[in-house]
């Protein structure tokens, strides 16, 4: 499979070129356009049989869709265009063993060899991380495509690193984070508009998004006319 990311970072979409017999699993609604030589299969299972009802429900809790779409090329050089719902970046991550922990709604597509599962982070993190209650854990080998709101920037963490809640896209499983306050005093942290932050520790790659949907929603919401 060949991939190309276009119109980065504000309106990114991914163009994937698949050879006959190759498959990719996409988020429901991610497909923008495609060549005619694809079969599309919609199930709650991972391609190849893993998962099912329980996994589908877990994915729903993680902010993803109950169903998955599997696109399989039936002819050579078939192109598939996929994109996220929100304005923002798309990134490619080649997963080679190990796992990537992805924020609830950031998973866009992955190769067939990648297992997608929802994982619980503990109550404190669920309530205060500014992300979903569950995270999507992607493990295995293959290409993984993630989307963000705004641009994505990677950070190589070795030691500690602090990210505001709501700005995490994904991080490698060699990292862990705790919820903490931005400053030394909680009141100061809240008055400073930062409130709680995610403090990462360990070694590995962390991907952050430049904007976060809740802040955007708060700005936009009051300006919308009531329907």
């Amino acid at each position: 499979m060949h991939h190309q990311l276009l119109a980065q970072p504000a309106m990114s979409i991914a163009k994937l070129t698949l050879q006959a017999g190759e498959s990719i699993t996409c988020e429901v609604g991610a497909m923008i356009a495609m060549s005619s030589g694809f079969t599309v299969e919609t199930t709650s299972r991972n391609k190849g049989g893993g998962g099912g009802l329980a996994k589908g429900l877990k994915r729903m809790f993680a902010g993803e869709n109950f169903f998955l779409n599997h696109f399989t090329a039936t002819a050579p050089n078939q192109s598939l265009w996929i994109g996220p719902g929100l304005l923002g970046d798309v990134m490619h991550y080649p997963l080679s063993g190990g796992s990537l922990i992805v924020q609830g709604s950031s998973w866009l597509a992955s190769a067939v060899g990648i297992e997608i599962d929802a994982t619980w982070q503990g109550l404190g993190k669920a309530l205060f991380s500014g992300e979903g209650m569950f995270w999507v854990k992607c493990s295995g080998r293959g290409d993984l495509f993630l989307n963000s709101f705004g641009a994505i920037y990677p950070v190589d963490v070795n030691g500690e690193y602090v990210v505001d809640t709501g700005h995490i896209v994904a991080f490698e499983d060699t990292l862990n984070f705790k919820i903490g306050k931005a400053g030394s005093s909680l009141v100061g942290s809240i008055l400073g508009g930062e409130g709680l932050v995610c403090k990462f520790s360990g070694q590995g790659k962390l991907y952050c998004q430049s904007h976060n949907p809740p802040s955007f929603g708060k700005l936009l919401g009051p300006k919308l006319k009531a329907r």
């Binding site: 796992s99 922990i101 499983d173 060699t174 990292l175 862990n176 360990g202 070694q203």
Partner: peptide, 23 residues
């Protein structure tokens, strides 16, 4: 010991330039 699961074991070399990890 750390990582996302909290169970991952990291073995670091003395100068920390090399780390081998397993979960």
């Amino acid at each position: 010991v750390g990582g996302f699961s909290g169970r991952m074991v990291f073995c670091r070399s003395a100068d920390r330039s090399l780390t081998i990890f397993c979960e």
